[in-house]
């Protein structure tokens, strides 16, 4: 199934539905190994000031570039439309991509995205031809606004960034799936365990973007494999059609032809 279950996002056809972040790994070598193990084809990166004495950015890029993945730069740290546009233009120049993960934080405690700034920044970016991947809450009205502007991708959180709490409100994700069947729907943030990723896929999401759950695992490479398999399992479950839950129990063995000791009861 993996061979034929491709999907298109941001104008590119992908085979893997697991997208991966590049932060918080124990070492660059470990990052590379984990990313290769999980089979991701898209990697998120950020832009930061380059200290000429350390050249950390150039060293980091040398580790990532050779992986040959699609790069999804983010706007982490931006606090205004103007900052977003400047960073977006700089990212486009360096990475030669129109893709952009639009991330604007509105609350320092929960790291909840700012929905108002998100909409204004998305509009400005779309006008400049960027393919906007908005990191958002699971708010259906916000999603409506972003889709109306021209966003083909929606990236609701499952829970706050880095919290590992999993999907806190399945009903809201399910609603997003039902309302926006044509959008690429990806859970971004809050995934802590492979079962969370599988659940997101079972709910009909097109993919999962995660970072900390793999990078901070005791064995990031082993966890990368676990997430790869979980995303595939959840996707297969969604495609196969989950049974509807029932309020009561229902015997799975047939009632016809019960053994003799039940015959008197019938």
């Amino acid at each position: 199934m993996e061979d034929v279950d491709t999907w298109t996002v941001g104008g590119r056809t992908l085979h893997s539905r697991l997208l991966i972040g590049s932060a918080r790994y124990p070492s660059p070598a470990n990052m590379r190994e984990a990313i290769q193990a999980c089979g991701a084809e898209v990697i998120t990166v950020s832009l930061r000031r380059e200290n000429p004495r350390e050249r950390a950015g150039q060293a980091f890029w040398s580790y990532v570039r050779d992986l040959g993945l699609h790069v999804l730069p983010n706007t982490a740290g931006c606090e205004s439309v103007e900052e977003v546009l400047t960073v977006a233009r700089m990212a486009r120049e360096i990475f030669e991509t129109d893709w952009l993960k639009l991330e604007v934080i509105g609350d320092d405690e929960t790291l909840q995205p700012d929905p108002f700034l998100l909409v204004r920044a998305a509009e400005a970016l779309l006008a400049e031809g960027f393919v906007v991947w908005p990191y958002m809450t699971d708010d259906v009205v916000l999603a409506e606004r972003l889709v109306a502007l021209g966003c083909d991708v929606l990236m609701p959180w499952g829970a706050p960034i880095g919290s590992g709490q999993g999907i806190r409100d399945e009903a809201r994700l399910r609603r997003l799936r039902q309302r926006f069947p044509a959008a690429a729907l990806l859970v971004d943030a809050g995934i802590g365990a492979p079962s969370h990723a599988a659940r997101a896929m079972e709910l009909g999401c097109d993919g999962v973007l995660l970072n900390t759950a793999i990078a901070r695992a005791a064995d990031p490479v082993g966890m990368a494999v676990a997430f790869r398999d979980a995303v595939r399992a959840g996707r297969r479950g969604w495609l196969a059609g989950l049974m509807a839950p029932l309020e009561r129990g229902e015997a799975s063995s047939p009632m016809v032809g019960l053994p003799f000791w039940h015959q008197e009861e019938r």
């Binding site: 590049s22 990166v45 950020s46 832009l47 950015g57 890029w61 990475f95 880095g162 900390t212």
Partner: peptide, 10 residues
């Protein structure tokens, strides 16, 4: 002047 370069990010 700001000089930006790639860095790890989620």
């Amino acid at each position: 002047v700001d000089i930006l370069a790639p860095m790890a990010g989620g």
